[in-house]
Simulated assay, not measured.
Amino acid sequence: MINKVVKQLGLPIQTMNEVEDSFSSTVFRCALSNGEYVFLKIPYTKMKFQRELEAYEILKGLVSTPELLDYWHGDEECPGAFLLSELKGQPLSLEVSPSAAFQVGVLQAEMHSIRPPVGKKLTGIQNEFANWSDFVEQQFYSFAVEVKDIVDPQLYDKAIDQFELLKGQLPSPDGPSFVHMDFRPANIIVDRHKVLGMIDFESVRFGSTEVDFTKLYRDFLRFDSTLYCAFREGYNSIRPLIDLEAVFPFYQFTDAFNSIGWCKRRGIEKNAVFLEENLARLKYFLQ
């Protein structure tokens, strides 16, 4: 299949190396004969391909992303493929300056400022905003099937009760906005103290912004109050930031719960560390 994709896109490839930390697509970093590097990305499903294709069309000129150089719609064997430019940097880390954290806030707020396009029919990106509570519930209970198989029954029952309790305490949703659904450091590329853009749009929706802060806080913002403050200032410079303290209890809890289900779906052994982290987080949130 890889050879077919390379042929379809007419790539003069010298070398290919698979990107190991890609969880929803097969991704290769490719060196071309002219010395440039590009990324070849093959989503796992047709729906993920269509979402990402529409995302690049919607975000172009509004938010910093890799350039979509070419794509192939695929066939019965291949869901489709993208050829993307390289953002010449590294994933966001705690080593960045407050200036970079400010830029992350700006980047996310620019994305959240994007509304569903008027008069354009989308077949990949769903607008879930009008039924946001139902969407969140469907996600939770879809993962609950896997979670039930691997956690203590008492812990599982307690989690179900907690979900119903916290869901009823959520404020009115903020949107409809373009939400990434996986806005975390690995998907934010920086060069020293400059944010270059964001990547990976297989899970995007139009929905409530409240869902998009959890992973960034989990993996980045909670460790340094200075970076957290800078992020908030950057976000507020573009649009008002919601009251995160009002939504974090629900979304941090559901993130831990859903991540346990994700580990079961994708393989417990190869995701053992992530599974243990989220089991510990779930127990903590249920104390």
Rank of each mutant, 00 (worst) to 15 (best):
V204Q: 08
C229S: 10
V204S: 06
S225R: 15
F220V: 02
F206R: 02
G207P: 10
R218Q: 14
K215L: 15
R222M: 08
S225K: 15
F223W: 14
I199D: 06
T209C: 03
T226V: 14
D200R: 12
T214I: 12
Y217A: 04
H193G: 02
H193C: 07
Y217L: 10
L221I: 12
G207V: 00
E210S: 06
D212K: 11
C229K: 11
F223L: 03
S208H: 04
G197C: 10
F206H: 00
F213T: 09
F201Q: 05
K215E: 13
D219M: 02
L216C: 10
V204C: 13
K194N: 09
F220L: 03
R222Y: 12
I199E: 07
D224P: 13
L196M: 08
K194H: 11
G207E: 01
Y217V: 04
V195C: 06
M198F: 07
I199F: 09
T209I: 10
D224W: 09
D212R: 05
L196V: 07
L221S: 08
Y217P: 15
R222P: 14
F201I: 06
L216F: 13
F223E: 08
C229M: 09
D224C: 03
E202Q: 08
R218D: 11
E202I: 01
K194I: 05
L221Q: 13
Y217W: 15
G207S: 11
E210M: 09
Y228V: 00
V211I: 13
R218Y: 12
E202F: 06
C229H: 13
T226Q: 11
D219I: 00
T214S: 14
R205L: 04
M198E: 05
Y217N: 15
D224M: 06
S225G: 00
S203G: 08
S203N: 12
S225N: 08
G207N: 03
V195Y: 09
G207H: 02
F223K: 13
F223Q: 05
Y217T: 08
Y217K: 15
L221W: 14
D219H: 12
R205V: 00
T209H: 02
E210W: 08
Y217H: 15
M198I: 12
T209S: 10
V195M: 06
S208P: 09
S208G: 02
K194V: 08
F223C: 01
H193R: 08
R218S: 04
C229F: 06
F201W: 13
F220P: 10
S203Q: 11
T209L: 03
F220R: 06
F213E: 04
L196A: 04
E210Y: 10
S203E: 14
T209K: 13
L221C: 10
F206P: 07
F213C: 09
V211A: 11
T209M: 06
V211D: 02
V204F: 08
F220A: 00
D212G: 06
V195N: 07
F220M: 03
L221Y: 14
R222V: 06
I199A: 01
C229N: 10
F213W: 15
T209F: 00
S225Q: 14
K194A: 01
F220W: 12
F220E: 01
E202C: 00
Y228A: 11
